[in-house]
Design a protein around this nucleic acid. Structure first.
Lengths: 156, 156
DNA sequence: ATAACTGCAAAACATTTGCATACAG
DNA sequence: CTGTATGCAAATGTTTTGCAGTTAT
């Protein structure tokens, strides 16, 4: 995921604030601090990691508020929730225009991102066949890295 | 998922028994009863549903044994584990030769199965680009059924 | 003012683990 | 016999919930 320009960051934050206003939800300092922390993370993260980073930065928020705010951000499409096989959900900041899927290394858990236009073809065709309006999808590929240089190269 | 012929069922069960033997694992009555129950279910199920069905049928097994046996069956590819967004894992009996993905209705949770050859194309191409040996994938489409006849038809 | 939000701690939930007992090999 | 599997219950880890107190609007 590419880093954001200052302008983009401002735009996205404004979208969040607009969403709160529009739904008559309150613009609390906790919600904004959580937003800032998420958008400062250039990686996938889980709720606990996020909470720890906030506390480490001296932001006094509770676990419940972190979950609450993550829900809000998922609802307004500024954060995506993933369920990568493990028990706990994984999150990722999202710009609605940057659509991608994931390739996950079974040896080191490293996550690569990719985008293949054929997926849109599959969505379109299945939507037609089953008479569905497809609103989202989740695709993960799992495998072993074959690169000599990969420290975690699998031998299985 | 199509139903199994008696012959296929016998074959699959034998594969399980062979797997146990080969790994010096014991062929207990609990493991066989759990296998039978799973292969009698023509649908997706979770661990708790499976346990309840077993108990309802008078098979006295514990939750721990259900989880243990599910692990074994996943390892020997006779059962597939899915993580469909919810917290708890969902399982499905599998014949290794029937490869498919899922389309999930956001209104009624009904699961349709489909198979699109383009997915293999994506696997192949991403394997080449990232220098990975792709061993499996997980693809779910989510959406709203548009059929007039669907009782749960979404209006959102 | 007042309705919504927060923090806390307890509850809920799926899954895993430890240990004494049972049993397949 | 022997070690592995089982059942039970307690532990684990993540997420949700209830409630009293706080705060944005």
């Amino acid at each position: 995921m590419p880093n954001l320009s200052t302008q983009q960051l401002t735009d996205v934050k404004e979208r969040f604030i607009a969403y709160l206003k529009e739904r008559n939800l309150r613009q609390t300092s906790e919600r904004l601090a959580i937003f800032d922390q998420i958008y400062a993370i250039d990686a996938h993260f889980d709720a606990d990691e996020l909470l720890k980073k906030l506390l480490a930065d001296g932001v006094a928020v509770s676990r419940a508020t972190v979950y609450n705010t993550l829900d809000l951000l998922v609802e307004c499409n500024l954060v995506v929730r993933h369920q990568f096989g493990t028990k706990q959900a994984t999150f990722e900041r999202s710009f609605s225009f940057w659509q991608h899927d994931h390739l996950i290394c079974l040896d080191c858990d490293h996550i690569h991102e990719f985008c293949d236009p054929r997926i849109q073809g599959v969505r379109d065709m299945m939507g037609e066949i089953f008479d569905f309006e497809i609103t989202r999808h989740s695709l993960q590929l799992y495998g072993h890295c074959q690169k000599e240089s990969c420290a975690y190269r699998g031998d299985g």
